[in-house]
Structure formats: structure tokens, C-alpha cells
Design a binder for these strands. Structure first.
Lengths: 338, 338
DNA sequence: TTTACTTAGTTTACCGATAAACTAATTATA
DNA sequence: TATAATTAGTTTATCGGTAAACTAAGTAAA
């Protein structure tokens, strides 16, 4: 592997002159030497060793993208939400001249070690972190970090991007109410402490009360939010375990599972049950009937996250964090009036 | 950020002694100093700077995962095949003690630069590369590389992992034939020079000829293989543009699009048309009816790729490349006898 | 008793880059 | 003409580690 030293030797100049050419400091080098050196660089396909550069510059141009591996032996990239978001972020990070190191994590200490190991310039957390882990990260003061869909205490100075979960819950429920539904289930991972879910729930409750409908505990379905969990709920719904005419599920996968679970029991969506999901994955239109859902714009989310992070890295303190991205209702085929 | 030097100062020893403790070279250090140093390391959450280490050791513990960004402005991680494969590889790479740098690439020179920049120990290419790019990579001799689904000239000494595409084409077609179909379309990106497709096509042709059925050019549908392309084909099929009773599509997305395109025209799968896909994505069972498809095992593919790569990196020359992974028919609901 | 071998370290040099200070030659200014 | 400023570089020190050679004290063997 060719080094700057060797380029310098071949050009008959010192290392620094080559370094200056590489870094565009042309005022220090005569134009004929610039051309000479650039030719030699080109000819040899020279690429600077960024390990060495990072060492002196105390900045690595590395951004770590971290995803929680919630469940052991479970490939988190199966989740299209994570994958798409990851892809968007990778593209934007690269366009900004940074490199992406990815790691799925089950232990916050691994993250700390990773960031220290590579002297990362910044980090993006795709999934919410626990309060304790957040505090640990804060104390260490390793590098700027952006958190997606994390809710913090008001005094926190973390960077974060989230969506308007309250609105999501509200407009989904309102849409069902406007279509004549009065018994509406809210299916989600209710045990989670995250405010993502409680905001959506609050939106649901407020929409109900706006229509003068009392919230009933029996309409709150506590479940994991994967497709498989939906299958079970769908079967239960077809067996009239819940006295509802519609379900608002807080993930598309859950909603899709519910639909499939229903159809396996001869229960027809939307005739027998209306369903609304959350996220607007590609699957929504691939499924039949096509899933009505609350859409979030992952490109916007990614863009905001990276922008926030890079302005923190480069100290351009225009950080109006948290950024709250809008959501909207995508009306398709799984809600029927009654 | 705390350094080895500082740890050494606090412990009252030289840098090397600390370095030896970190690297488990305990025979050079007394046990009480080992304990002392380990405590100081722990207390300070010290993590070695891997940029510095890479510099002296001439190995970075970095493996680059490369994905072609075929289309500009198109997030490749939307593709569940890519995402899952990526996730599997990331997990295995990490378990092997390596770090993952990802990059979506549209130009092979960017890859070369990336690998040089970070002095990568190895690279995995998730998508096929052109003949010229392969040769360019070979000439440069940068680091060991594994290619997924690439077909090479016999003399090539690249490492590669692929699947039995021929068998996939053969068993899919045979399944349709055994169900009484005689007019079977083969829908794929036929213009592609890659042997992935031609192997599947050969399997298709051989199955036909085994049943004494002449191959007809009118049964070969040339198309891109995304969902949207399937929609068009599906509409054409419902309009009887092709005289067939079944389609073998070389991607699940294409198959799913075809199904949707049909259903939008009131054409019913599998009653009016049988469909077989390829890959066995999660979507196959989420869709209704559930898609019969040729399944490949992405975990196995990932495992083989990383194993091959790491044994090349560590010079354990047990490289029996190419590895060919098996495929199997997953019978579900989109093929009907006639 | 002399020499050889362990043990438990230390010292020095270096990986491949950059920052900062320095220099020699030329040109501009007082 | 003497001095200052500019141009086009070079030199030295350093980033945070590791390899390899070295050393001093204590122990074992001849």
C-alpha cells in the first residue's frame, strides 16, 4: 500500500508538500509541483490512510449508527422500518463526507467502547434507549449523539428527532370515529415505558373524548408489535374476544398480522373489522386489502438527524432540538364506514 | 479521552506494561501489577484507540460491506433481501471480532478508495459486480474479498458464495408442470448479463424439455424485477397479453406485483393464474394468498461468506470457494392444479 | 564461584499522517 | 540600500498505540 512518503519521494519533495496538495492548500505549492504531485497520486491510486489522519486530527470522520438488538438471535434488519431508516441515514452521512460504522447493540457499554475505539465523531441511535443508558452516555461526554424517537426530561440537552406521535394517535382514531366506529381497540406494547406509545395513546383517548365516548380498558390490547403477535390478536378478534369494530395498531406489522389472523378465521377486513396501522411501510400496499395507516417520512427523519448531528460536530450551534416530524393519514382500503 | 500513556502514568509503569496487560501478555507482568492496571483501566472506561493500533499492526479489524446503489436516489435498503442479508452479515462479522463499515456504491473506484482509506482487512460485496470492475479489484490486490452471487471465469481465485440458481429455476418450473401447467411464463430481467438469471432460465428450459414441452419465446417476459414492474406485468397478464396459465418470477417482489396487478383487474391468483416467486422474503406469507416461492437461506449465505473471508484474512487456507448454497421450494397458496 | 537463565519489566523506533515553526530566495516597500 | 513581506517550500514534533531489542535483579546450573 503506497504512502504519502513514497509519493513525496517520487516527486522529489517533502511529505508536507504532498500533504498540502492533498488537502487543497495550494497557496503553499507552486502550480507545476501541484500538477506533478497530482499526477503521481492519480497514477498510484493513492488514498490517504485515514487511521493516521484521525490520530493527529483528533477527528475520525466516522459516524456510528447504532441499533438495539432487542431480542437475541433476531436480525433487527428484518424490520423494514429500521432498514429503510438505516439506508436513508447511510446515504446522507456519506454525502456529508463521513463514514458509517454500524453495530447492533444489546449493551450500552459496547457502544461506549465502540465510540472510544474509533474516536467516532458522532453517533445516531435508531431505536429508543433506556433512561439509565441515556444518562450514562451523557456523563461520558464522548461525542455528539442524535437519538431517534427518544423522549427526555425537559432539561436534557441531547439531540433528538421524533415524530408527532400524539397527532398520529389522534388522527387515526378520529378517522375511525368519523367513519362511525364507536368501539375502537388500541393495540400496542402498553407495558413499554417509552413515551412514544403513551403519546399515541393520549391522542387516541383525546379523540374519543372529543366524540364523547368513554375510554374502556377492555379496548386496550397489550401485545408485542410484530406480525406474529398480530396473528394472535386477529384470531382473538374474529372470535369476538374483544367487543370492537375497529383496531388502531401502533405498527404496520401488527396491523398486517391482525388482518391475516382475521382472514385465517374467515373474518373479513374491512367488512367485519376496520384496521389502521402505523409507519406506512411498503408492505401496506402489497397487502390485500391495502392497509390504511399513519405515515411518517423516513427521509425527512434521517435528514434531520444527520443535519442535527453534523452541526453539533462542526459546532454550528443552530441546534433546535428536538425536531418533530409530521405524520399523516394514508387512507387506503382497511377502514369501512358503518 | 484517556490514553494508554495516562493509564501507565497513573499506575507508575511504562506504556508497554499496560499494553501487555491489555493484550493478555501476562507472562511479562507480575500479577499484582496486572490487577492494579486492570482496575485503573476499568475505572477510567479506557478503550484503546484502534486508529493507532491499526497503524502499527497493519490490520484494522474493519470489514467493509458494499452494496450497489443501482439506481440513484433509491434507497437500496428498501429491499428486504439486501437488508436481511446485511443484518446477518453484520452480526456474524461482529461476533468474529471485526467492525463493519458500510457503503452503498455506484462507482468501483469509491470502493477502492474506501478500502485503502481504512486499510480494511476484508470486504463483502452483497450484489454482483461487472466483469471489468472485478478485474480492476483483482489487479489492485487490496485485501481479501467475498462476492455474493457473482459468477466468474473458471480460473478466477476470488472468493464467492452463491446459490443453486439452476436448481431454483428447475424445481419451480417442475412444480408448475406437475400441477398440469403447460404454458409457463418466465419473468425476469433477461437483458442482464449476470449468470444468475441465465442459470435460472436454463433450469426452466430443462424442466420444460424434460416434460417434452417446447420453449416459446413468447413466454419469456423481460422486465425489471421490482414490485412496480410486477404491477404492469400483472395487468398485461389479466388482459391475456400472454397466453400462459402460470408465471415463474425471479423475485418475490416481482411476483407480488404481478399478483396485485392481476387482482386490480379482477383476475384471481391462483384460480386464473399460478405464480411462483424467488427468495422467500417475509412478505410471502404476509401477502394474500401466500406466495409459493423458491427459498434461499440468508443466514447460511452470510455465514459462509464471512467464514470464507476471515479464513482468507487469517490465512487459514481452507478456502473451498465458491460455496453454493441450496435452495428449496416453499409450497404455499399461489399454485393451483389444472 | 562463575555463568546461564528467568522474571519483570523499560527503552527505542516506528506506523502514516498533520500542525506549527522554521528557512531560503525572491519581490515589494520605506 | 536596507528592511519587510511574500513565496515555496522543509523540518521537527506529535497523535496513541505496538514490536523488538534491551536491562537489571534474582535464581538455577555447572
Amino acid at each position: 500500500m503506497i504512502t504519502l512518503q513514497q509519493i513525496a519521494a517520487e516527486a522529489g519533495v517533502s511529505k508536507m508538500t504532498v500533504s498540502n496538495v492533498i488537502n487543497g492548500k495550494f497557496d503553499k505549492v507552486s502550480s507545476q509541483k501541484i500538477e506533478l504531485i497530482q499526477n503521481i497520486i492519480e497514477k498510484n491510486h493513492y488514498a490517504p490512510n485515514l487511521n493516521a489522519r484521525s490520530l493527529v486530527k483528533h477527528q475520525s470522520k466516522i459516524i456510528a449508527i447504532l441499533v438495539n438488538a432487542f431480542v437475541l438471535d433476531y436480525n433487527v434488519f428484518i424490520d423494514p422500518y429500521i432498514s429503510r431508516l438505516f439506508g436513508e441515514i447511510e446515504t446522507i452521512v456519506r454525502a456529508a463526507g463521513y463514514y458509517t460504522i454500524v453495530q447492533t447493540v444489546d449493551n450500552i457499554n459496547d457502544v461506549i467502547t465502540l465510540l472510544r475505539n474509533w474516536n467516532a465523531d458522532g453517533a445516531v441511535f435508531l431505536t429508543p434507549q433506556s433512561e439509565e443508558d441515556l444518562e450514562l452516555l451523557l456523563r461520558q461526554h464522548i461525542c455528539p449523539m442524535v437519538f431517534l424517537d427518544n423522549y427526555f426530561k425537559a432539561d436534557s440537552d441531547f439531540l433528538s428527532v421524533k415524530i408527532d406521535d400524539y397527532k398520529g394517535g389522534y388522527i387515526a382514531t378520529k378517522h375511525l370515529l368519523q367513519n362511525g366506529h364507536r368501539k375502537i381497540a388500541f393495540a400496542s406494547y402498553l407495558r413499554e415505558k417509552s413515551d412514544v406509545i403513551s403519546a399515541r395513546l393520549q391522542g387516541y383517548l383525546d379523540a374519543l373524548s372529543e366524540f364523547g365516548i368513554p375510554a374502556e380498558d377492555s379496548c386496550l390490547i397489550d401485545t408485542f408489535t410484530r406480525y406474529e403477535d398480530g396473528l394472535v390478536i386477529g384470531r382473538d378478534l374474529s372470535n369476538r374476544k374483544y367487543d370492537v369494530t375497529a383496531v388502531f395498531a401502533t405498527s404496520d406489522h401488527l396491523a398486517l398480522g391482525i388482518m391475516k389472523g382475521c382472514s385465517l378465521n374467515g373474518f373479513i377486513v374491512p367488512n367485519d373489522l376496520s384496521v389502521i396501522g402505523f409507519d406506512d411501510l411498503d408492505l401496506c400496499t402489497i397487502a390485500t386489502p391495502e392497509l390504511t395507516t399513519i405515515a411518517q417520512d423516513l427521509h425527512e427523519k434521517a435528514q434531520s438527524a444527520v443535519q442535527l448531528l453534523i452541526s453539533a460536530i462542526t459546532d454550528t450551534q443552530q441546534t433546535s432540538s428536538p425536531v418533530v416530524c409530521d405524520v399523516e393519514l394514508k387512507i387506503r382500503q382497511t377502514v369501512q364506514s358503518r
